[in-house]
């Protein structure tokens, strides 16, 4: 999915307000970036069709709100992007700082902590740098 500059701005706006209609959105962005009400309306419609906004009719206008909270949305996106490396590093197109595909048991963690402490005890100079 690709987002245009205005779509991105509107999505971020809806992460800060609960609900708004096209006129309220237009009023908010009129000073900072200009643009017509029609542009705002069509952008809101595109975001709705992309599943990023929800809407319900209130009188003659639609009331829009974000389909999910920012953290939830980005968290879901990260999950999708990193899904291949949680399934197994050998399938991944990413380079993660630590692997998510395998776990360490308590014994392994203890062993590694002791190893690090042992190394530090034998190399005191390095710690000061």
């Amino acid at each position: 999915m690709n987002l245009g500059e205005l779509e991105k701005l509107l999505l971020k706006y809806f992460w800060t307000v609960e609900v708004a209609d096209a006129k309220q959105v237009h009023a908010h962005f009129e000073k900072s970036r200009g643009g017509s009400l029609n542009t705002i309306q069509s952008t809101l419609d595109r975001l709705f069709k992309k599943g990023l906004l929800k809407r319900k009719k209130a009188g003659h206008a639609f009331q829009y709100r974000a389909a999910s909270e920012k953290k939830t949305f980005i968290g879901q996106l990260i999950k999708e992007v990193t899904r291949d490396f949680t399934m197994g590093d050998q399938e991944s197109l990413l380079a993660a700082f630590v692997s998510l595909s395998s776990e360490l048991d308590n014994e392994q963690i203890d062993k590694l902590e002791k190893l690090i402490q042992g190394y530090r005890a034998n190399h005191p100079m390095e710690e000061q740098r």
């Binding site: 692997s99 395998s102 360490l104 048991d105 308590n106 590694l112 190394y119």
Partner: peptide, 22 residues
């Protein structure tokens, strides 16, 4: 962290990386 009885197919690469570093 997994219990010691948990099965995993290979040694975690964090363990190998720390071993390699130290």
């Amino acid at each position: 962290v997994l219990a010691p009885v948990a099965c995993h197919y290979a040694m975690d690469n964090v363990e190998e990386r720390i071993n390699y570093l130290i």
